[in-house]
Design a protein around this nucleic acid. Structure first.
Lengths: 244, 244
DNA sequence: CAGTTGACCAGATTTGAAATTTGGTCAATC
DNA sequence: GATTGACCAAATTTCAAATCTGGTCAACTG
């Protein structure tokens, strides 16, 4: 190789991987997994098809990497909110933010809802699990619950597993809508639904009254660490190393 | 006609309609809407196919009548529970019972979840609404919420519409399961999930502390009336009168 | 003749084989 | 050494023929 490339310089390979993912993202939202072809992705990225396979072994791995990136960015958004205001680290606030983000981002919603139309074969992974679960969402939620409990942001009246279940249930219900709630019911704004989700989780799981500011800050710190770890876990293998 | 048939005598037509619905029910659970043929229903009911069309104009109307009957029986179950114990009229208890019933009865679950596999074309009605909604489930829930509020079984801190949304959201989430919750997760018993749903609705929507016994009894009475009305509404047109 | 039936039909669905598309590879090229 | 696109096997789509099924109604029954 021509001298060692300084680590600080932008790695062209990584940049290219991002470009490919950008192209895949556009096409995914426009056409859905099934109808997107690797050829078309390569064309959009102004690259030969073979080059795509220099980055990922299969189409599925490429898109998994994309979903990881989406989730990673979302985790970053949540983390930023918490850095700005520790109160955003409370369970109800985090759930609210996840819901709100889902309403904005079609891909994120598809992951949470297991949308077969958009994700196609990706909706359930090879092991039969929903992608979102495969991506470690469950583990992250479980860890957050432990942190929240340790810092008094969740009651200890209920076992942690039950609290995970309730958060999961409420979030899923809010995302996929119910019997009465039409998903197209646009006169019931997203923000309002998000508030109701937050209200539900707060009253069902959080201790009464506002949290102690000092404990809240400590909790926020721990949550940020957990999110940072999750982001690290989500660092998608996108280069040669992962191949073969 | 040969004399007027006394109204007290069992009407063979009605009995026959029930037999047809029984046959349809068995087949629906075994094969799903799409694969059940009217021929097979007639055979099971030991009746000519033409006779089926003496009762309902179309296959879809036949199955809608079946779903109505299912729902009617379920409403009856809930009502019986309330007659036995007025406490069962509380929002959290009703939600719990609906969830528990859904776990037992495949058809009921399919209606709540909008299961395309089992209900096929029936999952969403002609107007694009989930069947369950078409059957007046939404209206019933809205009416119950009003009753609960009037009798102090629900806070007035939240608008009624919001409470409907939350109940709907929680119920739907519990039924369809979330990201973490595998639907096959058999080591998380139905009864326990039902308890968690009840807990969520109780803490999120009901006033703190046990309800005043006198008011509870009055509320139970009003709820029973509403259920009775719903049952009446659900009386499926199953005879000639509805034809043409 | 009122009530019931199943042969019948048009339209929907399924089948299956040929034609096309697409994920993935690798020899040729830069 | 990195990149590419022609190439291939396998998957998917097409499309017409074959089959099935919802719904009707003339015939039949008691």
């Amino acid at each position: 190789m021509t001298h060692d490339r300084p680590a600080t310089a932008p790695q062209p390979e990584h940049e290219r991987a991002e470009r490919i993912l950008d192209a895949a993202r556009e096409l995914l939202m426009a056409w859905g997994y099934k109808r997107v072809t690797v050829d078309e992705i390569a064309r959009r990225a102004r690259i030969g098809k073979g080059t795509v396979y220099l980055h990922w072994k299969t189409k599925e791995q490429l898109f998994t990497a994309l979903l990881r990136r989406e989730l990673r960015q979302h985790v970053h958004t949540v983390a930023t909110g918490i850095e700005r205001d520790p109160d955003a680290a409370r369970p109800s606030r985090v759930a609210r933010e996840v819901f709100a983000e889902q309403a904005r981002a079609p891909i994120h919603r598809a992951m949470l809802a297991g949308d077969d139309e958009l994700l196609g074969a990706l909706a359930v992974s090879g092991t039969g699990l929903p992608v979102i679960r495969e991506l470690g969402f469950g583990e992250l939620l479980a860890r957050l619950v432990e942190i929240w409990r340790a810092h008094g942001l969740l009651t200890e009246a209920l076992p942690a597993a039950d609290q995970v279940f309730i958060i999961d249930m409420a979030l899923h219900g809010a995302v996929t809508g119910g019997v009465v709630t039409g998903l197209d019911n646009s006169d019931y704004p997203t923000e309002h639904r998000a508030d109701l989700l937050a209200h539900t989780i707060r009253t069902a799981l959080e201790p009464a009254g506002p949290p102690n500011p000092a404990r809240l800050r400590a909790a926020a710190q721990a949550v940020l660490t957990a999110l940072e770890d999750a982001r690290h876990t989500l660092d998608a293998p996108g280069l040669h190393a992962a191949n073969r």
